[in-house]
Design a protein around this nucleic acid. Structure first.
Lengths: 163, 163
DNA sequence: AAAAATAATGAAATGATATAACATAACTAC
DNA sequence: GTAGTTATGTTATATCATTTCATTATTTTT
């Protein structure tokens, strides 16, 4: 996170934000010698435009609208690629996907999911040094991947609920 | 946790362990005025016997073997009840369920999932005081539930892999 | 530049997970 | 014992994800 925790819940120039991530993604793929093909790029774009997590079939429908094929594998393949390259994260609690907003960092993300507006904010997880990391170390468990998600109500929705 | 972190990965008298949790569960239900009906009890028992997380349909099959009906809702209803009362946890990463080993504590659990032997160990999450809790507080996000899961390789499987 | 190897996509089918909806039965409280 | 509530029976369907094999596009090797 570039100094901005939970970007989704803060005001920012979203258009610029998307373009910037898109460019980083493109550079990253070139650097790694992998191809950000049209479907993959479109899926990333769809996810970037949305601060709510999108399910594979929602993405699939939007792909179809954009002229791509509409069989499940087209969405899943693109998502698998994007997830593998850290450009997109899967939100386990929602069986859905969000674009990563700092794709360069090899990070373990954490999410805050607003159960009211369904926006998902990404923040950084402190895997090794946290309780989980400590316990893991104590029992010799070698952590390869972490899922850290919090469900709750964002500040905006709390205010709305009161009024 | 009764002083034992990640019980599943440690040696212990599993039979006694199950019976003890079963008794706690029964007492808990009486105390709360809810019914631990035969299906519910059987599902809890199945999960307690297993240190690997069981999917709903696996449970369903075992229920059928034990003479219960075999439609999905019978498993899901029992699981919903057990989860609601903190006797069972859902492991999001696996779309599967594990029995809780300290049902009395109103806790937010964390899991360590061995991707080799598929055992799942439960440990306690330190939700409020961790990074996630701090970030949440900073942006006014009200956490209602957390999902904290680590995938990796347990100590036993690491040793086996070497030999 | 042609052939071979690799990576990506097309397409059909199926598998796995989960819920909706409505009817019936079993307990609980009065 | 009737009313209210909770739990179960049953059918159908929704939702999420993968397998498989054929075809096309791109890259590498020669």
């Amino acid at each position: 996170m570039t100094g901005v925790p939970a970007q989704a819940f803060s005001k920012h120039d979203h258009g610029a934000c998307c373009r910037s991530v898109m460019n980083t993604a493109r550079r990253l793929c070139v650097a790694r010698g992998v191809r950000l093909t049209p479907v993959r790029e479109k899926v990333l774009e769809l996810l970037l435009e949305s601060h709510v997590a999108l399910g594979a079939y929602t993405i699939l429908a939007r792909l179809a609208d954009a002229g791509f094929r509409s069989q499940p594998p087209v969405a899943y393949r693109a998502l698998d690629f994007l997830v593998a390259h850290g450009l997109v994260h899967r939100v386990e609690k929602l069986n859905a996907y969000v674009a990563c907003n700092q794709p360069q960092a090899g990070h373990s993300p954490a999410f805050m999911i607003c159960s009211h507006c369904h926006q998902v904010a990404e923040t950084v997880g402190k895997t090794r040094s946290g309780v989980l990391g400590k316990t893991a170390q104590a029992i010799g468990f070698d952590i390869q991947h972490t899922v850290i998600e919090a469900e709750g109500v964002c500040a905006t929705c709390q205010k709305r609920a009161v009024s």
